[in-house]
Amino acid sequence: MDCISARSKNIKGKGQSKLKRRESLAGLLFVSPTIIYFIVFFLLPLAVCIYASFTNWNILSPNRVFVGTLNYERLFVDPKFWKALKNTLFMLIPIPIYITFALLFAYACHKNILGQKVFRAIYYLPYISSIVALTLIWMWLFNSKYGLVNNFLSLFVDNPPSWLSDPFWTKWMIVIMISWKLIGFTSIYYIAALKSIPKSYYEAAQIDGAGPRQQFFKITLPLLTPTTFYLLVIGMIGSLQTFVEVQMFAPDGGRGYGVGTIVFYIWQKAFSSSQMGYACAIATVFGLFILVITVIQFTLSRKWVFEGN
């Protein structure tokens, strides 16, 4: 290896610009399918969406009238939008739950807990199941009388909650379901990250007299922060777009719109109320909102994400 790198350093001096041009060309060619995807299947439809957000398009009639920023003004005084936003933010609750549990699970596997192979297989099970199938099972599991959950709960409490009719509990049910589904999947990332931490770090720490707890907080956790960061970014983008669960569990948005999320609201506005223009405006604002949150996350990441290596 040393020899190879020496040779490569040697060659770097000469013909740099020509090499660079070739490299640029190759790089662009390699990502060209991606760029075409981006332009044809994302940018183009997105442009239509943004244009539509300034019109009163209803899908059904071809004539759309330009209405300026009316849709955007309307959004800020639409109480249902704010309710939906609140419900959407509620869907962020699963993130710390499944990240914590996944980390614990990964750490236990890393420490070779008894039966870890079997545990892993079982923990990944929920993630590989389709959402359509899962929601069907969950609806049946959480049936207030014949469901397994309430049959179990009734051993301890008198009146187990009506999961499917009380929006408060429906939201918690979705939170439980998302957490349940993602623990195993998330732990994969942590298991991998844990394995990539060099043993020498721990050995050095041991020499310095650090106990297991100190090792965990001083070495393991900081070195896992890049993984945690990736999971947070992807998790937030996903959670903020919760849709199918709502559509399946509360097809009308729940009592007093207590369950409906933003993406669900967009879908309702676009297809049930025939207000595609307005739906596009919400989507544009919401897309920007996610973008801003992600940018903030990246900015903040400099403060806590370990960038050694």
Binding site: K145, Y146, S162, L164
Partner: peptide, 8 residues
């Protein structure tokens, strides 16, 4: 009742 209706 409402909860009975929800279960069945």
């Amino acid at each position: 009742s409402a909860s009975e209706t929800e279960s069945l």
